[in-house]
């Protein structure tokens, strides 16, 4: 990156470090932090949407819909995350390809499973076999977001389901007495008030989600854990201009600090959000705010 980095073996101390930390490989590492933050930024709202849908379904008065919602919540919550992560990458991908295969290549006669091979026609491949590497990466990332959203959505659904029940019954009855329909009660009274009950649970979930991002690595996305392991590993002088011993400990220490900072910032933000949401609510938090004012 810098002009003086041409021959790193002659450098030492901080100059060496400045060259070492700006290699193309390290750029990949820094880039991966963006990937993790992007994953969080996309996954959080998507899983909240999944959760909202799940909770709304679970409390539906139409029995089959309620069953689907409840089944989603209990099945996904009951299966270890890691099993889902390992299962989904292969299963979701194959399901998508199978569906596309049925639509795009109806004349295909060969079996889709030949021994251990999973073969669909070229047009059904996801992403298409000849698409550039970035398309493959975006696709892998989207599968990761979907998997995270399904798993964390189930937990969010359970939290929101509970929060919807925690809204005082009297509030809903009053709304009904004013002549609001079920839909109106849901939208105008229930949903605005449930957040305060949901937030402690959701903030917990957010923390767990932050800590779960290293699972990206399992999904084949090159995340910060992958790079930390790769960069920290012993480098012999034959294959690099920057040979060093086993530095994985330092890289992982850096990740530890990164995650601690991220969770600390989240805590502060969530605290403020809680203050704002309790404002004017018929809860102990809201009541103490009213007294203090």
């Amino acid at each position: 990156m810098f002009a003086y980095c041409a021959d790193p073996s002659t450098l030492d101390g901080l100059t060496w470090l400045s060259c070492y930390l700006t290699t193309g490989k390290h750029m990949g590492f820094y880039y991966a932090f963006g990937t993790v933050l992007l994953l969080l930024a996309i996954t959080a709202p998507v899983s909240l949407a999944f959760g909202f849908g799940g909770a709304a379904m679970a409390r539906s008065r139409i029995l089959p819909v309620s069953w689907i919602g409840k089944a989603y919540i209990s099945v996904v919550r009951g299966v270890p995350d890691i099993v889902f992560f390992l299962f989904f990458v292969i299963a979701i991908d194959q399901i998508f390809e199978l569906i596309r295969h049925k639509i795009k290549c109806p004349e295909w006669t060969e079996p889709i499973r030949q021994g251990s091979d999973f073969i669909v026609c070229q047009a059904a491949k996801l992403p298409l076999g000849n698409s550039p590497q970035w398309v493959h990466e975006v696709y892998g990332f989207s599968i990761a977001v979907l998997t995270f959203a399904i798993v964390f959505g189930a937990f969010a659904a359970n939290i929101l389901f509970g929060a919807m029940r925690a809204v005082p019954r009297a509030q809903l009855e009053t709304a009904e007495a004013y002549g609001m329909s079920h839909r109106q009660v849901f939208r105008r009274v229930l949903v605005p008030q449930m957040w305060v009950y949901a937030l402690p649970g959701l903030s917990n979930l957010w923390m767990v989600l932050i800590k779960a991002t290293p699972l990206l690595f399992l999904l084949g996305v090159e995340d910060i854990v992958y790079w930390a392991r790769e960069l920290g590993g012993t480098k012999t002088p034959q294959f690099t201009a920057y040979p060093h011993g086993d530095w994985r400990m330092w890289y992982f220490l850096f990740l530890l600090v990164f995650y601690l900072c991220l969770t600390k910032v989240s805590e502060v933000v969530l605290e403020r959000l809680m203050l704002r949401l309790t404002h004017g609510q018929a809860t102990t938090g809201g009541e103490s705010q009213r007294r203090a004012a």
């Binding site: 290699t23 193309g24 790769e230 034959q238 294959f239």
Partner: peptide
């Protein structure tokens, strides 16, 4: 048509067979 692009899978952690070089590319 099927192989307009052939994707080669490697580990990138087994020098000198395959590894990631300083520039972050697959080398070896």
């Amino acid at each position: 048509d099927a192989h307009s692009t052939v994707r080669l899978g490697t580990e990138g952690a087994y020098p000198p067979f395959n590894f990631i070089n300083d520039a972050g590319e697959i080398d070896g």
